[in-house]
Amino acid sequence: MASTLLAGERLVRALGPGGELEREQLPRKLRVQLEAALGKKHAGRDSATGPRCLVSFGLIRDLHQHLRERNSRLYLHELLEGSEIYLPEVVKPPRNPELVARLEKIKIQLANEEYKRITRNVTCQDAQRGGTLSDLGKQVRSVKALVITVFNFIVTVAAAFVCTYLGSQYIFTEMASRVLAALIVASVVGLAELYVMVRAMEGELGEL
């Protein structure tokens, strides 16, 4: 936080011999403090202007208060013409080597995690394109289950037809009636099997 001024030539001349502040009858203590402050040169950052004097805000405030009490026609803003607020350079403390090493380690770890997250989808796509043994096994099992289901459907319908045809000989004497009864029973059994198959397929699709 700024607390001093770089005194301009106007303030230095006003406090010097024959200056404007001589007739203001400054208190001895205030004059001694101002002369001591203006007597110390400070090498500022602007090398073109050369060393300049630093005056604290407290001394400037005391000077302003004295001028107001005397109802002086010499105003403070006139005395401070050419002066500048001094902002000291902030010296950064050296960083802890252990903290720097830890931060670098955390950065590397975060970079690796980000790389894995980005390349994770690419790896999955490549595996899906090339195919794996597990995917092949799943496909073989699906085809096998479908073949078994179709075979069971055909065997069930055929068995229902044969059983009805043979059992209807005790009811119907004509072959046409026996065949019609067998077809009706086989159709009912086939529709029931189809219903069960559709429900099972819907369950499998729902799990996917």
Score class of each variant (00 low, 15 high):
Arg23His: 06
Leu87Thr: 15
Tyr195Ile: 12
Pro94Asp: 12
Met1Val: 15
Pro88Arg: 06
Ala43Gly: 02
Ala111Ser: 02
Arg141Met: 11
Leu80Gln: 05
Gly58Met: 02
Thr149Met: 12
Phe161Cys: 02
Leu136Trp: 10
Gln125Glu: 11
Leu191Phe: 06
Val196His: 11
Arg141Ile: 07
Val188Tyr: 07
Leu74Lys: 07
Ala182Trp: 10
Tyr170Asn: 11
Leu180Ser: 15
Leu194Ala: 08
Gly19Pro: 13
Gln65Arg: 09
Lys29Pro: 00
Phe57Met: 01
Val196Trp: 07
Lys107His: 02
Tyr115Gln: 15
Glu202Phe: 10
Leu34Met: 12
Val55Thr: 01
Lys40Gly: 08
Glu204Phe: 08
Pro17Thr: 08
Arg68Pro: 01
Lys138Asp: 13
Arg120Cys: 09
Leu136His: 10
Pro93Asp: 06
Ala14Trp: 03
Gln109Tyr: 02
Glu204Ala: 12
Arg141Ser: 09
Leu59Tyr: 00
Glu174Ile: 13
Glu84Lys: 07
Ala37Tyr: 15
Lys144Gln: 06
Val147Cys: 11
Gly203Trp: 02
Val100Tyr: 00
Asn112Arg: 08
Ala2Tyr: 07
Pro17Asp: 14
Lys116Pro: 00
Val140Trp: 05
Gly44Gln: 08
Glu104Gly: 02
Arg141Asn: 13
Leu166Gln: 09
Ala127Phe: 07
Ala36Lys: 14
Arg31Trp: 04
Leu74Gln: 05
Gln65Val: 02
Leu166Phe: 09
Gly18Arg: 15
Val198Asp: 04
Gly39Gln: 09
Val100Ile: 06
His42Ala: 09
Lys144Cys: 01
Glu89His: 03
Gly130His: 10
Ser83Phe: 03
Leu208Phe: 10
Glu69Asp: 13
Glu24Leu: 11
Ala158Gly: 04
Thr132Ile: 06
Arg23Ser: 14
Arg141Asp: 10
Leu59Trp: 02
Ile106His: 02
Gly39Arg: 04
Gly58Leu: 06
Arg13Trp: 11
Leu87Glu: 14
Val12Gln: 14
His42Lys: 05
Ala145His: 05
Phe172Gln: 01
Leu15Ile: 10
Val198Cys: 01
Leu54Asn: 00
Asp135Met: 15
Leu79Glu: 06
Glu89Val: 12
Leu103Thr: 04
Gln25Lys: 04
Gly131Thr: 08
Arg28Gly: 13
Val122Asn: 03
Ala37Gln: 12
Gln169Arg: 14
Arg10Gly: 00
Ser47Gln: 14
Lys105Ala: 10
Ala176Lys: 10
Asp135Trp: 04
